[in-house]
Design a protein around this nucleic acid. Structure first.
Lengths: 236, 236
DNA sequence: ACCTGAACACCGTTCAAGT
DNA sequence: ACCTGAACACCGTTCAAGT
């Protein structure tokens, strides 16, 4: 009702808008963020936002930029002595970070379009990991394959879990894909038995994440064992 | 301009609406499908659709239902003699089906909310695969782990690739996450060298898909080797 | 029972102003 | 240079009719 007095000249700046956008998105999720909502949240006119962000997409990209930078800074590169431990803890920590931060998932993984310099930041990080693996004795090709595989496993599991969670929220309370009807002892006895012992198929969870990660790391182990001795022979 | 004559009583039915919805979605993608658009495409009033589908969500769910049923029917269960070949070709065929059909990806994987009976259909399929693995000598627990892992790998890779493709289309022509800037010989020499040899990190593609699949299948191989002999001893 | 337009509350974005 | 409301073309959905 109060007509909101017109703001002074320098009272608005992109950082405040971004800040408000994150506050609001925390409540309503990225999907439901709208420009009019954001304007009301900030107590400004809708069109004022467009002075700093010419399209909603620009705003989202700026948010993605900031949230990714923050997450990179808060996730220091853990460098264990063995490559296996390093990769494993890194994968886990990336996953934990993303799962604890839905905005991060939505902006970075589900709607990926980053600014150029953030992309370079990511590339530099990948370079470091690859370099570490090569130091540990991996072929360059193997190092790239192994790390790509891990990255995709982590991202894939995060995205699937996020999508799963989203649909649990929006759907009529609890009409999820799995879980509800399909597993009954008559039609699917094996699945029923397995689920009694705590195994739930298909759903992305900690167990499945760790399982896939182990598969990749074990495979890497064998790659290393196969190439490393051969190279040592050649060097002699 | 032509004012469109009013339709007769029985001239409209849910199947025709669904059919039109698929035609339209083929052109504009699921994300851009709208009720007014669909009505224009069908030459009917917008509100007529709401007689058969009370919410847009109901329409999408019906579409998901139909498209999944069709894809299941057109993808016959290939039953090779060895479990490894069976799993591998199955995984590949599921992936090919989804990648060839963006609507399927968007409706089933990215916006999952299926009707109960389709979910049961999926569960029954899983049951069969698990049963096959158990016959091949796997523990029930192992069979569930292996197949869950494969399913998640397939779904994860499909979703990541679909999201990737989407953002290639909508973004200002070619401002993709990877590829554009980050890989330069000065800042990231190893990645540059690898990419010269055809290795591109992080992106979901055929190579990465096959790599992850192999990791899982190899792991399954070792699980089988570890449990199968032990069981034979016990049986004697 | 089935089909319809008018109408509502929303959205993203543009434009022509105000200061 | 910065902030603004009015306005436009869209959207999903409801409602009170028409047949």
């Amino acid at each position: 009702m109060a007509k909101r007095t017109r703001l002074e000249r320098g009272s608005l700046n992109p950082d405040d808008i971004l800040e408000g956008a994150f506050e609001l998105t925390d409540e309503v999720t990225v999907d439901n963020l709208s420009m009019p909502m954001l304007a009301r949240h900030l107590g400004i006119g809708v069109t004022s936002i467009y002075w700093y962000f010419r399209k909603k997409d620009d705003l989202l990209t700026a948010m993605a930029d900031r949230v990714l930078r923050e997450s990179v800074r808060s996730t220091p590169a853990v460098k264990s002595s063995d490559w296996r431990g390093t990769l494993r803890t890194h994968a886990r920590s990336v996953r934990r970070t993303f799962l604890a931060n839905p905005i991060l998932c939505d902006l970075i993984l589900i709607r990926p379009s980053l600014s150029a310099d953030v992309a370079e930041l990511g590339a530099r990080h990948n370079e470091n990991v690859i370099a570490g693996l090569v130091e540990s004795g991996f072929t360059l090709a193997d190092a790239v394959s192994v790390y790509s595989s891990i990255q995709l496993h982590v991202h894939g599991m995060i995205v699937l879990q996020r999508l799963h969670d989203k649909n649990l929220m929006s759907d009529s309370p609890s009409s999820a894909y799995y879980e509800i009807l399909p597993i009954s002892p008559e039609t699917t006895p094996l699945l029923a038995e397995a689920s009694e012992n705590g195994f739930r198929g298909g759903e992305p969870d900690d167990r499945n994440f760790e399982y896939g990660l182990t598969c990749i790391l074990d495979h890497a182990d064998r790659l290393l064992a196969a190439t490393s001795p051969a190279r040592q022979e050649m060097e002699q």
